[in-house]
């Protein structure tokens, strides 16, 4: 007797395990590493985040007090969040959504 038969028949008569995602929300786990956001009021343009970023996704322009964050280059490791001494970078738990074009988020004070 094939060993999977029981499981298969049980599956057939039970509710699918599927989360009908775009039509119902996917349950988010606490502490998910998602996008980041810069609080320019706290930032003192020390460029630590730019230095530690493994994928060089953050560009700090100290003169213009401007930070460019390339969300299509970021690997969402949140090392910058850990590193920032002024807690100027906020970790968000929603993930970046796909897009037709690559774009860069600019934070200005």
């Amino acid at each position: 007797m094939p060993k999977l038969l029981g499981t298969i028949i049980r599956n057939l008569f039970s509710k699918p395990a599927t989360v009908n995602y775009p039509f119902e929300a996917s349950p988010l786990v606490e502490g998910t590493r998602g996008s980041i956001s810069f609080n320019m009021d706290r930032c003192d343009q020390c460029q630590d985040c730019e230095r530690v970023c493994p994928s060089a996704a953050i560009k700090v322009y100290p003169d213009d007090k401007k930070i460019e964050w390339d969300q299509f280059k970021c690997i969402y490791c949140h090392l910058c969040v850990e590193t920032c001494m002024h807690k100027a970078i906020t970790a968000l738990d929603h993930v970046q959504s796909p897009d037709y074009k690559k774009s860069v988020t600019v934070f200005e004070s």
Partner: peptide
């Protein structure tokens, strides 16, 4: 399908631990 359905439990633990399903970092 059956195994990967169960594997989601492990990925869930991953996410609870490190904040990501794959890369714990």
């Amino acid at each position: 399908m059956q195994i990967w359905k169960i594997r989601e439990i492990v990925l869930d633990l991953n996410e609870r631990t490190g904040g990501h399903r794959i890369h714990l970092s």
